[in-house]
Design a protein around this nucleic acid. Structure first.
Lengths: 338, 338
DNA sequence: AAATAGTAGTTAAGCGTTTAACTATTATAC
DNA sequence: GTATAATAGTTAAACGCTTAACTACTATTT
């Protein structure tokens, strides 16, 4: 690979001149610029980013962090959408993405991740930060690297989906259809801040409508999977007489629908099932799933934009992104009210 | 951030000693090692990767390249599975991933990508290489960086899914059910080498069974999307009397099923529909889709393993990964043969 | 005529590592 | 008792770039 020195020699100028011409420093004659550029052209010079990084402290590399606790992170449908949003913004500005998916444990993220964060490799960080267990963005870890959190982690700059509003409009929809006996299929809320907010939205809305949320039958041993949705639906339906199942995510909702059908009920005629996320399968499934679209690509876009503002020494405003209720075929008024 | 120099001073030894102790070079007393390690511990020293990269030429960064032509790459269901496989192998070895999704045009990949490839940032490359348009791994681009291709690009080290075997077993399944009038829903094969192989498998198998593949009604203006699957199914069913639709991917197959149902036919009773990929929705859809699982995570695992072999100066063998036929509910014998 | 400002480039230090080459001490062989 | 090898550490060059500080010349101001 040609270096600055070779370009300089070929152009008959000093190394510094080449470096400065390439970074558009003023005070060079057109003649000099031309000589430099044609030498660059001929040799096919491209900067050695490692050297540039060492010298300038800038790598043009953005870390995108998806921590996980139990299962691999790539089963989370948010991930690819966020990645897509961040990637678009980075590419536009000539930045590249370093993808890291550290495993989280009570003693914090794994060694490999800590090395990356403190390596001076990353100009900035965008991190999913929803897990109470331990923040991947704790100040001790990231030193002075600018960072934006996606989620509820304790961090000055963040983007979140409005889980409260999302779960509120979801429960409002179910209640407004006339449902009074509602089962909740969810996961342990200590796993996820966003889940806590969704619970809060469900509860507040139910109680505002005069329902006793505390007495709703609940299955909270789910793990976001289809299988746990099936299990949850089975448990709730075997014990109680509900007309609707509100699920904490789409995969559990799709599992629930299958279980409901397997037990001889129809969706939505006998039982309404709603989810949260609007994954691809939600639209395709039959019956198509009523759910909340949290517009995940927008999370990525906004987070990246905020990060570049920070890199530009601006102070960005944190953002809460509103969700969208997608009413499809899996929700309808309860039988009794028809 | 503490540097080697500070650690050396604190430990009362030279910089070189610290560096060597940290890389487990022999010939140091336990006493010296202890002093160094406790200084490292106390200061929380972590190496500056940019400096290490410049000095040693090793960054411990692996480029993972997903080129795209028209639509964003993240809609491709392969991507997340491959990423998952590569990530697992990299993480195990202390490597990090640089994700790049260059847009391909007839004059090759975009500038930003070329800079990355020749920047000395990447120790190795894993690239999806299926598009005839221009290889992201052409020797002129990647200089001496070791690379493994996933797909049919002209490259010495590659991993591919056995598209020929996959499409063969898919067509064998349909033919063995008794179908003779079969519609093909596909995309322009110049877009993708793997598609060419799938076509070949379909054709050979049909002809081996004594059928005239050339006269099968075909829709080849698809773009992998659900919408184009619906359009294709509509066109084929309006013109010809087929009992089965073989689709080049699952999304088109799911679109086709919806269109078939919308036109008043039942799947699989009236018309069999099969797909290719085994995306999540394929299992969830009702009727569940008969399709080919190409075991994408395995592609990522194998590619990464080959790359690390290369980095280790070994010569890996290229791999063709067999697929698995998933027979579900969307395929059945044609009416006439019952 | 001297001082100042603007233009056009060069020199050289520094970024934090790695590692070849070197010194110095101690152990082993013959 | 000297040569050789093994052990234990240091010195200093190199990686390729950025940039502050400097030189040198020309144009303008006072």
């Amino acid at each position: 690979m040609p270096t600055l020195a070779e370009v300089a020699q070929k152009a008959g100028v000093s190394i510094a001149t080449v470096s400065k011409v390439l970074s558009n420093t003023p005070y060079f004659t057109e003649e000099t610029r031309r000589k430099v550029m044609s030498a660059v052209e001929e040799l096919g010079y491209l900067p050695n980013l490692a050297a540039r990084a060492l010298s300038s402290g800038k790598t043009h590399l953005i870390g995108v962090i998806f921590p996980y606790v139990y299962e691999g992170i790539f089963t989370d449908p948010l991930v690819q959408y966020i990645l897509e949003g961040v990637e678009a913004e980075c590419n536009e500005r000539g930045y590249n993405i370093v993808l890291s998916t550290p495993r989280l444990s009570p003693d914090g993220p794994e060694e490999n991740y800590r090395r990356l964060l403190q390596s001076s490799y990353l100009d900035g960080i965008v991190a999913l930060d929803n897990v109470p267990l331990s923040s991947v963005l704790s100040p001790s870890l990231r030193k002075n690297t600018p960072a934006v959190a996606i989620g509820y982690g304790d961090h000055p700059y963040f983007v979140r989906s409005d889980d409260l509003q999302g779960s509120t409009s979801l429960m409002e929809h179910v209640v407004s259809l006339g449902h009074r006996h509602i089962g909740i299929l969810t996961v342990d809320e200590s796993l996820h801040y966003s889940i806590q907010n969704r619970h809060l939205g469900l509860q507040t809305t139910a109680e505002t409508a005069g329902l006793n949320y505390a007495q709703f039958p609940k299955f909270d041993r789910g793990d976001f999977s289809i299988a746990s949705g099936m299990q949850g639906a089975a448990e709730v339906l075997n014990q109680e007489n509900v007309t609707a199942l509100v699920c904490i995510n789409d995969r559990m909702a799709l599992g629930a629908i299958q279980q409901v059908q397997k037990m001889g009920f129809r969706v939505p005629d006998d039982i309404t099932v709603v989810g949260y996320d609007d994954i691809l399968s939600a639209q395709l499934f039959s019956p198509a799933l009523t759910t909340i679209d949290q517009r995940a690509p927008e999370l990525g876009h906004q987070a990246a934009q905020m990060l570049f503002a920070l890199l530009n020494n601006e102070i960005p405003d944190s953002v809460v992104i509103p969700t969208r209720l997608c009413i499809r075929e899996s929700s309808a008024p309860p039988k009794s009210s028809r």
